[in-house]
Each structure stands twice: as C-alpha cells, then as structure tokens.
Design a protein around this nucleic acid. Sequence first.
DNA 1: CTTGACACTCCAGTTACTGGAAACCCTATC
DNA 2: GATAGGGTTTCCAGTAACTGGAGTGTCAAG
Lengths: 131, 131
Amino acid sequence: MNIGEAAAVSGLPAKTIRYYEEIGLISPDRRGNNYRDYSDSHVHNLRFLARARSLGFSIEECRQLLSLYGDRCRASADVKAIASRHITEIDRKVAELMEMRATLAVLVEACHGDERPDCPILEDLAGQGAP
Amino acid sequence: MNIGEAAAVSGLPAKTIRYYEEIGLISPDRRGNNYRDYSDSHVHNLRFLARARSLGFSIEECRQLLSLYGDRCRASADVKAIASRHITEIDRKVAELMEMRATLAVLVEACHGDERPDCPILEDLAGQGAP
DNA sequence: CTTGACACTCCAGTTACTGGAAACCCTATC
DNA sequence: GATAGGGTTTCCAGTAACTGGAGTGTCAAG
C-alpha cells in the first residue's frame, strides 16, 4: 500500500511517516514509480510507533523499543527498564508543572483582575513578592 | 556592568542573555569597546524574565508580561488573563502526562521484567493489549 | 487529453536555547 | 614590550520531532 493508505490505517500523518523513514525507523520498499510501498508488517511497526509516541516515549526510546520488539531473544527486563525510566521522567515533569501551578494559583488568586494597574503577579515576577 | 556580571546577578547564562537581546526582549547599551553594558534596570528585567521563565511562561508570554510590567496604565486583568491561560495549559499537560503514566504503570506492573522475552509492554505497543 | 488527487524531494520554520570557532579586548605579570 | 589568562564579540550549527510549502512527477477517471 502507498503512504496515504499507510497513514490512514496507522493514524500517523504521511509527513511523519516520511520523517520516520528519514531517521531510519522504518524502511518501506519502493515501487517502480518511486512510490513507497508499505507491507502489513511496516504498518504494524507504524502503529507500534504511534502508540509508543502517544505514551510519551522519545524517538530514541521508540527506536530501542522497536528493536527489542523485533528481537525474539530480548529480555523483558530491558523493556521494563525503559518504561520505568520513562515513568520516572514523567513524574519529574508532573512535579515541576505542579510546582509552577501552585505558585501561579496563589498569584492569580491574589490578583483582583480588573482595570487597575496594581498586580501581585507582576510584583512577584519583579521580585517584590519573594525577595 | 558587562554581561558576565549581569549573568551572575540575574542567574541567566550569558548566552541566554544575548539570545534575549537578539529576539528583542532587552536592549543593553554598548560601551566604547563594543561590550554590552547592563544597567540596574536591565538587570531587573533579566531577573523578571528568569522568574517568568521558571514559572513556565513562554518567551512570547514573557514579552507580553514585560510589556505590561513597563506599562503604568496596564489593567491587572490582562496580566491575570495570561496567567490563567497558562494555568489551564499546565493543567492540560499534567492531565496528559498523568494519563500516560497510568497506562505505563499498569504495563510496567504486569511485566515480570526478567530474562524471558514475553512482555506485556511490547504487546500493548504492538496492539495486542488494546485491539 | 485534461483534471484532480495523490506522490515525490528539498528547503525552511518551529521553541528556547546551547556549543563551538575565530577574533578582539583588558589586565597582570615577567 | 611580550605574553598569558580571562572575558567579550560575532556567526554558524545543532537540538526534538515534526510541519508547511514549493515545485514537480504519477496515476486513474472521464
């Protein structure tokens, strides 16, 4: 099947699929007219990538996961390690965001938010809030 | 003061300060030797930017906040609107991350993580887990 | 034979920096 | 005066993961 169909069944934009090829994640065959030709197994891998990306894995992690997926002799421990690291990273990001959010919530709460110019949010940013 | 000192007191790397100038956030004077010269007010703005960035505001939001900060006739409502939108965006990101985390946690929990090749994580990514 | 929908490649832009190269400036020491 | 070191300047390239667009080629239908 050509790239349009592969895009439709994998859920990935054609542009993204070409990009994945460019960085060596998938290598479809080429037809006589130079069109890319995706087999079921290619599409399977595209779906795999779409799912892994939607779970927040980086491209390099996806590359490793795909490689493990294709390796019959893999150890599940290797996969688990990647996923566990990813969870840790997510936790770190969430904690960072929540900290920002907590600070912002206090400031927004304190700001009357009308036409007057005085504003605790700007005061905080300017260093008056937490010297 | 020159850029090294401004970096030290603002907490921003000199590279970043030059970048902020390049995109028009700050415009220090120049000395005879072409060195940048930062006044206290410049440094104040650099601190402002550092704080705003640490709260996750984008550069463009920082630009607006800085402009509002310098505008004596601002309405605090404008500031509050930017901050509120930012909180909403943070909430969206956190929700997205938490959803990923929940899925990953289930998968990691289900994976025995030893030398055997069978792995629920890969099965999920491959589409066997949630068809 | 033309039209429209697809496909191809290549280039540029996105965000917010960061690293590095080559050159210039300033101060201190020998 | 020469030199060594540190700081400064500019410019270029690279990061992550695409995305948009230009210009061109291909295919099937009418």
